[in-house]
């Protein structure tokens, strides 16, 4: 167990270095630097431009800048945002709960619907129901998030008026964040209707962000279930006279979940990427919106730090998935 952790963590350091290097270089390849973007089309005097660049250290060679950045990282310093002058780390942790809340809601939505859909499709394989469910899943899997989000807003928010268009809660309500999770904070605030408002704001983003994971989980569950259902031990369970819900829901599902958990883990990582778009569509004040705005402002420290922190999160999630295997699959647990 410990040696497994050490082996895994030893891969993490080079991965982090590579990500830090790639983001650092990639964002500098984009035309326009923080100063040019801020001065706009009219431009400013070249001397003033040079002075401002010098203040930010942008006139030094890129290698020197990178090494300087790494030195900061080694001390836990992710830099300071050029546009807000706030430390990147503090901004990240202020905005992160919003993203986490949305990602958890989306994953919950995807798992709670995806696993049963996959199981039903496997049990009814080859029937119209199976084809309908899997066809829908394929469509969901191929759905462009941007278009899907706008479509849902048009229909549910604009035409039907059931859900709010954007944001996390109505402007009527204000309370200081305690946990950063709007659902919890709104409950703690004791204001009438705050929780329902927060919930209503969460519905559409959750569906939009959860669609691709939902489709992926449903398809994975179906194929894993089909494989498991033909296993000898499922026949044994039936030979023991176990009722169908035990045969399928306990004997088969427990085994089928092992590959599904892998997919859930991978999808959680991808959710971070999906969140960037979803948050942008719904003006959700999370990491995604923050990163997109930083691209527009060429806020180098925010982009470098933000992407690195999100990557770290994805790596952490994958590590947790690997550990979760052990809990699910006794063959891994005992295999040293």
């Amino acid at each position: 167990m410990l040696s497994f952790l050490i082996r895994r963590l030893s891969v993490v350091v080079p991965t982090f270095l590579a990500i830090a290097f790639l983001t650092f270089v990639a964002i500098r390849l984009v035309p326009g630097d923080p100063i040019e973007v801020r001065t706009g089309e009219r431009g400013i005097a070249p001397e003033r431009l040079a002075l401002l660049r010098h203040e930010l250290g942008l006139d030094r060679p890129v290698v020197v800048q990178f090494l300087d950045y790494l030195r900061g990282l080694a001390h836990g310093d992710f830099g300071v945002s050029i546009s807000t002058k706030e430390p990147v780390l503090r901004e990240f942790f202020t905005l992160f709960p919003a993203t986490l809340e949305l990602a958890l809601a989306a994953m919950l939505f995807a798992v709670i619907l995806g696993v049963p859909i996959g199981v039903v499709a496997a049990l009814k394989r080859g029937t119209v129901l199976d084809y309908a469910l899997m066809g829908t899943a394929l469509a969901g899997f191929s759905m462009p998030i941007f278009w899907w989000g706008l479509l849902l807003i048009l229909f549910f928010s604009v035409d039907l008026g059931w859900t709010p268009v954007s944001g996390r809660i109505d402007l009527l309500y204000y309370f200081e964040p305690v946990t950063g999770f709007m659902l919890i904070d709104s409950l703690l605030s004791d204001q009438d209707g705050a929780f329902l408002s927060a919930l209503a704001h969460l519905v559409l983003p959750t569906i939009v962000l959860g669609t691709i994971p939902l489709a992926t989980i449903a398809r994975m569950t179906r194929s894993a279930m089909l494989e498991v259902l033909s296993e000898d031990y499922v026949r044994t369970a039936r030979a023991k006279g176990m009722p169908p819900f035990r045969v399928v829901g306990i004997h088969a599902l427990r085994n089928a979940l092992i590959p599904v958990v892998t997919v859930i883990g991978l999808q959680t990582g991808m959710l971070m990427g999906g969140a960037v778009l979803t948050e942008h569509i719904f003006a959700w004040p999370g990491i995604g919106s923050w990163l997109i705005e930083s691209i527009e402002r060429r806020d180098y420290p925010v982009l470098q730090g933000g992407i690195l922190l999100v990557s770290g999160l994805v790596i952490l999630i994958n590590l947790m998935v690997d550990l979760a295997y052990g809990a699910l699959n006794p063959r891994i647990r005992h295999g040293r």
Partner: peptide
Amino acid sequence: GRDLAMIFQEPMTSLNPC
């Protein structure tokens, strides 16, 4: 499973691994 039971050819795959 109660009055009428069955055992199979492949014991290794007939037990549930989980």
